[in-house]
Design a protein around this nucleic acid. Structure first.
Length: 276
DNA sequence: AGGTCGACCTGGCAGC
DNA sequence: TGCTGCCAGGTCGACC
């Protein structure tokens, strides 16, 4: 799915294009994307509300509504949001089979929520505390509070460091691509128990996390398959990827073959020579 | 407490 | 040209 850099890209785009616009109508094409309520109650809750602020927590987008309420979008593996400056009929979009919900806005523009695997969720709530996963998220890795000391505490466990980085309760927003890329950048073997990292290694990791995430945000994220930004464009970070999905290819730093292993049921990619 | 595993879904692609 | 099996950016709950 969209990880932190992709959701942050969507957030910035929406803030630019639809801030202050009112949701005139909502259409839901598959009720499975609506979390915790019927599509009818979701629609009732959102209709007539004005989108005032666009925030991100981890991999979730949080839209603050006026006079009250929030729209939370959790795209998971394959969700993304497209902004259509002029209203289009749903059946005229190229994304028809992926289109799960349409938000018609006050200036005749529209937001389309696409998600072909349908793991993603849309929440319409009055109170953010009712969105359980948001309350369990660890610190934001780009916030000043995310210090090396905080990271040290968070990594005090036996879990392999790659698995720990992907645990949203320890740090919010890092997924499978960026966990591998961050560990390559820091020169740390993903299989190491996270508590075995020396202070100097934690400091390296602590520098690599924002470095890679910010670089990915500048490149507008990674599009391996589904992900698109709000104008339908692919993210460019794929050009900067050094290990993810490169099993058997040469390490761009040392020339050794990139290895692939499975950790916590997810593929991990690393260079056994550069990462110790 | 902390780890692993199946489940949730659809579709693209490699290999036969 | 099918068909089968595997794989995919995430998370949750059941189990050990």
């Amino acid at each position: 799915m969209p990880e932190l850099p992709e959701v942050e890209t969507i957030r910035r785009d929406l803030q630019t294009h639809v801030s202050g616009l009112t949701i005139r109508n909502v259409e839901v094409f598959d009720s499975r994307v609506i979390a915790g309520q019927t599509p009818e109650s979701f629609i009732r809750r959102l209709r007539g509300k004005t989108m005032m602020a666009f925030d991100r927590r981890g991999k979730s987008l949080i839209i603050t509504l006026k006079p009250r309420g929030f729209l939370v979008i959790q795209p998971k593996m394959s969700g993304y949001v497209i902004y259509h400056p002029s209203l289009k009929r749903a059946d005229q979009t190229a994304e028809r089979s992926k289109l799960k919900a349409v938000f018609e806005l006050s200036n005749k523009s529209a937001l389309h929520y696409n998600d072909h695997r349908m793991f993603g969720k849309l929440y319409g709530v009055d109170d953010l505390s009712s969105v359980k996963h948001l309350n369990q998220l660890g610190p934001e890795p780009l916030a000043p509070e995310f210090t090396a000391a905080v990271l040290t505490t968070r990594l005090r466990r036996t879990t392999p460091v790659k698995v720990a980085l992907m645990n949203q309760e320890l740090v919010a927003g890092i997924g499978n691509i960026y966990a591998s890329e961050i560990l390559f950048d820091a020169g740390i073997d993903p299989r190491r128990p996270s508590r075995s990292l020396a202070p100097s290694e934690i400091r390296r990791l602590h520098r690599s996390i924002p470095k890679i995430l910010k670089q990915a945000i500048r490149m507008r994220g990674s599009s391996l398959r589904d992900y698109r930004d709000t104008s339908g464009q692919k993210g460019d970070f794929v050009r900067c990827i050094r290990v993810y999905n490169r099993a058997g290819e040469s390490c761009l730093r040392c020339g050794h073959k990139i290895q692939s292993i499975v950790q916590a049921q997810r593929s991990t990619f690393f260079c056994g020579s550069c990462q110790k």
